[in-house]
């Protein structure tokens, strides 16, 4: 029997084309992220040294490098989640388009973080329902009205291919989903506030091979509308989906370029060594 409460979650007309809320319109030209002589230290230990790099729009950029080289820290700096690390000090600048991320007010930061979404390493469903997880981002930015939220939830769950799997239990706690489903839910949650950039910190490392493949395919599909920056451990994954590659070693950017060029014809000795597996 069909659950009568589903009306509370499912929009009346599911065939209607979806238009994001006016608050979440992308700018006409997709912006780039520019990292400009950026330094970061934690309790005096230098983690990132004079990082200068441009992260292009509408591409999948993979940040690669051995563990502990600072790639996750760089990613966290891009949406200032690095603020919460105790004893952190930064200099230099990071910009989204023309807007500085490093030197911005608290109110700008909230809007900047909306424009730069995050897919975490391990899935982190918020302590609410499946519906609530997707609607959360919209609600905190002041979107109201059940009709509108229903449409948003429907649309983004469709985008990540989760709709048919969960449409009968949208009111259930999100923690009851499988890990792979949770990760797609997290992706849908980020997409729901229409970010321009999506940061993914080893977003597939906790998943089984099938689920990781699904996420990878989604990223490839999504790069037409969103710019994606991925930190990855697995070179093979970078080979599969990267358009652009940033190689970091000991907190310094060693080599940057198109994936084809970096993988097939690396310019730097360290990159060659890393790609051949001599350093890891």
């Amino acid at each position: 029997m069909r659950n009568p409460f589903l009306r509370w979650f499912i929009p009346a007309d599911t065939n209607e084309p979806f238009v994001p809320n006016a608050k979440f319109q992308h700018p006409a030209v997709a912006p780039e992220i520019t990292v400009d002589h950026f330094n970061l230290s934690i309790d005096g230990a230098q983690i990132l040294k004079d990082v200068c790099v441009k992260l292009p729009a509408n591409k999948i950029t993979c940040i690669i490098g051995p563990s502990g080289c600072g790639k996750s820290t760089l990613l966290k700096s891009l949406n200032r989640l690095s603020d919460s690390i105790e004893g952190v000090k930064t200099s230099g600048d990071i910009r989204l388009g023309d807007q500085s991320i490093v030197n911005c007010s608290e109110s700008d930061l909230v809007e900047l973080r909306r424009r730069i979404g995050l897919v975490p390493q391990r899935p982190t469903p918020l302590p609410m329902s499946i519906f609530g997880n997707i609607a959360y981002g919209c609600k905190i930015h002041g979107l109201k009205g059940r009709r509108q939220l229903k449409k948003i939830v429907h649309h983004y769950l469709k985008v990540v291919g989760l709709w048919d799997e969960v449409k009968d239990r949208l009111g259930n706690p999100a923690t009851r989903l499988s890990i792979g489903q949770q990760q797609r839910l997290c992706l849908a949650r980020s997409l729901a506030v229409e970010p321009e950039f999506i940061l993914a910190d080893e977003a597939t490392s906790a998943l089984d091979p099938v689920s990781s493949k699904t996420i990878e395919d989604l990223f490839v599909k999504l790069k037409k509308q969103y710019s994606i920056i991925m930190v990855t451990h697995t070179l093979r994954q970078a080979l599969r989906i990267a358009d652009y590659v940033v190689f970091i070693y000991m907190g310094e950017v060693i080599e940057v370029g198109d994936a084809k060029q970096v993988f097939e014809n690396p310019q730097h000795e360290l990159t060659k060594k890393y790609l051949s597996g001599a350093i890891s």
Binding site: L81, S84, I116, T124, G137
Partner: peptide, 15 residues
């Protein structure tokens, strides 16, 4: 409460 959960919320632009 894990910091990852906070990060997830902050990265959506929450205060």
């Amino acid at each position: 409460v894990s910091d990852e959960l906070r990060a997830a919320s902050y990265s959506l632009g929450s205060t």
